[in-house]
């Protein structure tokens, strides 16, 4: 009854049929994500604690959290941006839904055996949907007057945004694989370092575009376009030529990038407050102001970056560990 009425109102307002269902699905997705999060919180203890170094457990945890944060960022950011776009196409519900499943799947890691397939498929589908999303966004831009113009890059569907979904899927995959296999830590570490570096660069690119749109009106807006590329350079160097050297400052830098994610959210909240009537006018300002859910993805990338470094350390320690084990 009530649902019908809401559905009806929504359709009359927007002339779009799916409103109620789509929004319901997103809410369900968020719920699913949190259930998964609750389950996951217990996982590492129950999952085969033996034979794993502390570093590896830490890496798995960081990788999992990183991927989940990326998924959550996609969930909330795309929900917000697509709400701004009025969910005028049914496909627009897919992005937040996939964000929710990506988050849930990431949190369900690390697993060693059963149901691993489902998770793998979920990670892969995040990647696929991310790529499709980029296609949609590109099409949206190219159909507007001006084509690939600054006005469309600034204000039409953001080209880079679905990339976060791709990254979330890829991080999920890597976490999945490193949970399943032992002895390949060094390789996985290099992979993850490379992936995180690429993600940091892409993310900074997106931030650069949007902060440029905001004319860097606050000097703090330069931080997310300087720190992450630095971290990315460091990680890339580690991926190509893993070396213990510089790893310590790099870890600090990655922690700073992670912190940027949290601080950035706060800054964006202040940014919303600086719009006309601030939070009192939240229905306008949360959509028109800086996107609240966006900065947190840096927290995810900071974590996966540290996971990569941990894995490298595990890989490098392994011969020694094996020797120790043999001695016992």
């Amino acid at each position: 009854m009530t649902h019908d009425r809401i559905y009806d109102t929504f359709r009359r307002r927007t002339r779009r049929p799916v409103g109620g269902i789509g929004l319901g699905a997103i809410v369900a997705g968020v719920g699913l994500g949190f259930v998964a999060a609750g389950l996951a919180a217990r996982r590492p203890r129950s999952a085969n604690p033996v034979k794993r170094s502390r570093n590896k457990r830490e890496a798995l945890r960081l990788g999992r959290d990183g991927a989940a944060i990326m998924g959550a960022s996609v969930l909330f950011d795309s929900a917000l941006e697509h709400l701004r776009g009025d969910f005028r196409r049914d496909e627009m519900y897919v992005a937040p839904l996939t964000g929710a499943t990506a988050m849930a799947a990431a949190l369900a890691e690390p697993r060693r055996r059963k149901r691993g397939r489902v998770l793998e498929v979920t990670h892969l589908s995040s990647v696929g949907i991310g790529i499709a999303g980029m296609g949609f966004h590109l099409r949206n831009i190219s159909r507007r007057p001006g084509g690939i113009s600054w006005n469309n890059l600034f204000y039409a569907a953001p080209l880079g945004a679905p990339g976060a979904l791709i990254m979330s899927g890829l991080f999920g995959m890597v976490t999945h694989r490193m949970a399943q296999a032992e002895g390949y830590e060094h390789l996985h570490g290099r992979e993850l370092a490379c992936l995180t570096a690429l993600a940091l660069v892409a993310e900074s690119g997106e931030v650069a575009l949007l902060h440029f749109r905001g004319a860097f009106h606050d000097k703090a807006m330069y931080l997310p376009v300087t720190l992450p590329p630095l971290a990315a350079a460091g990680l890339m160097a580690q991926a190509i030529y893993p070396h213990r050297h510089f790893r310590r400052p790099l870890t600090l830098l990655l922690r700073a990038v992670e912190g940027l994610g949290y601080v950035g959210t706060g800054f964006h909240a202040l940014g919303v407050a600086r719009n006309s009537a601030g939070w009192r006018n939240w229905r306008q300002t949360t959509l028109a102001g800086p996107p609240m859910p966006a900065p947190i993805s840096f927290a995810g990338l900071g974590k996966t970056g540290r996971a990569a470094l941990d894995l490298l350390a595990v890989g490098e320690d392994q011969p020694r560990q094996n020797k120790e084990r043999a001695a016992i």
Binding site: G214, H217, R274, N275, A288
Partner: peptide, 25 residues
């Protein structure tokens, strides 16, 4: 302004520029 500047909020697209901007954008 298309972004905050000093004490001015960014334009809220009220469309009433010709009768005076009440939000100081």
């Amino acid at each position: 302004v298309s972004a905050p500047s000093g004490k001015s909020p960014p334009c809220a697209y009220r469309g009433m520029c010709k009768i005076g901007c009440s939000i100081n954008a």
